[in-house]
Amino acid sequence: MLETLCDTVQPGEGLNGMNIRDAVEGDLPAIVGIYNATIPYQTVTADLEPVTVESRLVWFHAHTPEKRPLWVLEAEGKVVAWLGFQSFYGRPAYEKTAELSIYVDSNYRQKGIGRMLVQRAIAHSPGYGIKTLLGFIFAENLPSLRLFEQLGFQRWGYLPRVAEVGNKERDLVIMGLRLSSG
């Protein structure tokens, strides 16, 4: 029987009863809203214009609770963060590698939510058959780089000026964590 993730976690500072669970399609508007709110920062995502719920349906359905989950974190009765596992490079030889994407509502940042989600991703990855985790982070996104480094990720790659956001070229850092030597 397939079990989906649904954990009640201890409340963080100023947060009541947080819950991490597998996302359902009804969560997609909140997921898209959190994502779109990062676009103006120009250091978090390579999207230049807001995405729509409809444009993210295929992406949403590519996530499966048993192999490439998409989790949401609820606090105070609403979705305030999400983390997704995505297949890397789309070829069978990379099946045991996944890219993490994590986004937290601006009102809930610096409360340990991102750390909690990435730690949970690291802990659950072996159960999904994942041996290697990756994060693709703009070099200017220092909070994300620090978070991944503090959780054991190392800089595995640096791609200078590969993205153009606004009028500025951005460098991309590839962060990696090997979970198993097997």
Score class of each variant (00 low, 15 high):
G176T: 00
S180G: 11
S125R: 03
G176F: 04
V79T: 14
Y89M: 15
G135S: 02
Y103D: 03
G84K: 08
V162M: 08
F136I: 11
G114N: 05
A30D: 10
Q110N: 12
A30K: 05
N19R: 15
H61F: 10
G33M: 11
Q86N: 14
N167E: 12
Q86L: 02
I137Y: 02
G12S: 14
E149P: 09
L73K: 03
A30Q: 03
R21D: 05
V32W: 07
V9Y: 06
M116C: 14
F85S: 05
F85A: 05
I174N: 03
Y41M: 15
D171K: 09
A98C: 13
Q110M: 00
P92T: 06
K96S: 15
R178N: 12
F153S: 05
A123F: 12
V24R: 13
I34G: 05
P40T: 10
R91M: 15
A81K: 06
G114T: 07
A23D: 02
F148V: 00
N16I: 00
G112H: 09
A23R: 02
P126C: 03
T38D: 07
F60T: 05
Y89I: 14
E54S: 15
G157Y: 10
D7T: 11
N36T: 01
Q110Y: 11
A123Q: 13
S180Q: 13
Q10M: 12
D22L: 06
Y41D: 14
P92S: 05
I34W: 01
G152C: 03
L2V: 14
R170W: 11
N36L: 08
G12V: 15
L28Y: 06
D105P: 00
S180L: 13
M18C: 05
P69V: 01
G129S: 01
S180K: 07
G135N: 01
F60R: 06
V9K: 04
L5T: 14
G17W: 11
N167I: 00
G17S: 11
C6W: 00
L133C: 08
Q86P: 00
V53I: 10
P92M: 07
G14S: 02
N16L: 14
Y94Q: 04
R68H: 03
G157T: 13
V24N: 09
E66I: 07
N167H: 09
L48Q: 12
V173K: 07
A121N: 04
